[in-house]
Design a binder for these strands. Structure first.
Lengths: 215, 215, 215, 215
DNA sequence: GATGAATGAGATTTCATTCAT
DNA sequence: GATGAATGAAATCTCATTCAT
């Protein structure tokens, strides 16, 4: 009882679970304290293993972080890419679907904290910045762009400036992220209603995307 | 050998300029690397002095940071408070004036980086969070609120929910800040046009604030 | 160059022995140089480990010092308390026994140097002063007092002023301590014969304590 | 105005007073904090001058300390030597006179703190130890010895072992010193009555020194 | 003479990473 | 595989001493 950090009995833990447990501990601490300020010893302790064990699974702090990103963010991009590739309906519905999925899979989860962390610390860890750029930003951007291309080529969207509009669609999501994680000092974000915000934003965006219908 | 007689001064005495030079170096590095990752020795070196000299002017890292905030952000709040107190025209013009001043004094300057830094690191430095909360956030919030009160009491604004609207006015500014400083990895913000954004945003906000005029 | 394959271990694993080795090194240096002037790096080196290792065992310099006190002085007080509690003979014999034990366990050992160090540096380290006061001085004083009480209540000592006499008994021991550690400059104490001194002192003290017998 | 540490008006201070003021400040702080822990900046501030000024009068910390010793302790030894040389009465009275003078000139003054400081820190500052040894200990020892020689050669004292007895006479004075300055932690010396102690001690000592008179 | 700004070596403490067991 | 003791570079902060003004 006595509140050890995690109360799973040691003997039930299977080897295969280790990476999961480590990643779970890692994402908690990275989100809570940032990359630089997270001590690997704390990660290990929270996962219920020793410091050395952590290094059996991840060569160093950066690799651990990459693994966290690969587990918590990258899969969503894959799914979204799949959606885009396979979706059969109207591009406006696809767009709405992807945005809402993003919110439920990333925005609401701890993964949003990782996103904010990158914003704050990428400058100090170029290797991490490069990795995130390639694995997340670039692919995410491409995925959004391809959605727009799909819409345009199917005649469901107007012939918009795709790179520009891609940015416009990404930015508010980043903003939501930031908001979610600024409870400490500068803005009390408890008034924020993310879903309503996303809805309103999509309406606005689609308004600009959909072909003008005759009055 | 012991006593070389070359007379180049080991240092230059320039007490009055020092604090400015140190603060300039400090804001550069804080914005570039964040609070924790900035080494005081680097600040000193960039200001052209030794480690010890820095401590003649600022007791420790946190005090240096506070001094940076006091120099780069707090005065703007004071000015804005003055504007609010002394302004004689229509509250809508006051609002526009304050927002644009914010952009030119904070948003465009390195001070916006400090704002982002607080977002990212406040959690790890409670003392700093508290300081910023009291000296900046609280005062800023009050200042915005009092602008709204002025508008309402003069009949220039509708009878809005002031605390709520205060948040709504602050948030986009924080967002601009974030955008400005996320060039590194996740979003390429080169498309962003801050002034246009602020304009659009103010139009929208004022639309909600101004009393409905008869058609 | 880079990868010499010589297999001498960078360190030797000997967890159980470490605390002892560190404490031994620490007491040596504390006694030799005092608290403030002792560098933890030197303690570590003398114990044959690196700076960092020391911190695995003791959180900081003060804790290391406390550990030294706990190991070298506190146990003696415990033993003395036991003696007082369990002793069955005449209180004069108890008193003599405790005093001589003190000399052989503390006075003759390095622990006496710790006692002198506290005298000299307590003023600069209030936390240490408090600790020593509580763990050593207070308990020691109580122990002596209770010996006197025992003597009085068993009719073996006269009805003396106990607090006062407690001081009188402690003081000469402190003096012996001081003497032992002033070899450096001011007084050459090589003439001092501690046991003879203690004997003489006890005779004198008991003369004042024992009930007057009829001539 | 401004509440400078000492409120003597700056303009009344004469140059000649400087060394005195510096020594006064220095002895205060040395006694309060010890040699190593005393910061020259504090000494200067307490004397109402700048750090640089202090160096005009004393080349470094050790020289300042020596000056303190020369001012506060050495003169007493000179006086005592004079007394010994010039005294015309019985050697027992001379001894009593010197001992009581010591108490009033050194023991009761801050100088006793210097004596304790040397005890504590001499080991870390060999140069200081050597200085003190030569200027104080050696001379003091010689002075006491010569008193004994005087007594013996005049037939007023028995033919005692002079070096040995010299130590015996010095030791209790050192003890008084120690006692005076151990108020902080280990022994509460408020019961101590120095003059009574000295009296008793002298009685005892003289008992051993004076020739046996016929019964 | 007086000042106090400037220096820089040095002390404590932290933590990613290694590796003998 | 797992452990955790050990390392050592690095960061913050202090203070005796110097020297241009």
């Amino acid at each position: 009882m006595e509140c050890s950090i995690d109360s799973k009995p040691r003997w039930e833990r299977r080897k295969d679970a280790r990476p999961q447990e480590l990643l779970a501990a890692a994402i908690d601490l990275f989100v809570e304290r940032g990359f630089a300020a997270t001590r690997l010893e704390d990660v290990a302790r929270r996962a219920g293993v020793s410091k050395g064990t952590l290094y059996l699974y991840y060569t160093n702090k950066e690799e651990l972080f990459k693994a966290v990103v690969r587990e918590s963010i990258v899969p969503f991009i894959g799914e979204a890419e799949m959606s885009v590739a396979e979706f059969e309906g109207h591009s406006a519905d696809l767009l709405r679907h992807v945005m809402l999925s993003w919110w439920s899979r990333i925005g609401q989860s701890k993964a949003s904290g990782i996103s904010k962390l990158i914003l704050a610390e990428a400058g100090n860890f170029p290797e991490l910045a490069k990795f995130y750029q390639e694995e997340v930003t670039r692919r995410g951007t491409r995925m959004i762009s391809s959605m727009l291309e799909r819409g345009v080529s199917r005649g469901e969207f107007r012939n918009v400036d795709i790179p520009q509009l891609t940015q416009v669609l990404i930015a508010p999501m980043m903003m939501l992220n930031t908001w979610k994680h600024c409870a400490v000092a500068p803005c009390d974000a408890h008034e924020l209603q993310p879903l309503a915000f996303i809805d309103a934003f999509l309406d606005m965006a689609l308004h600009g995307l959909l072909p003008r219908t005759a009055p």
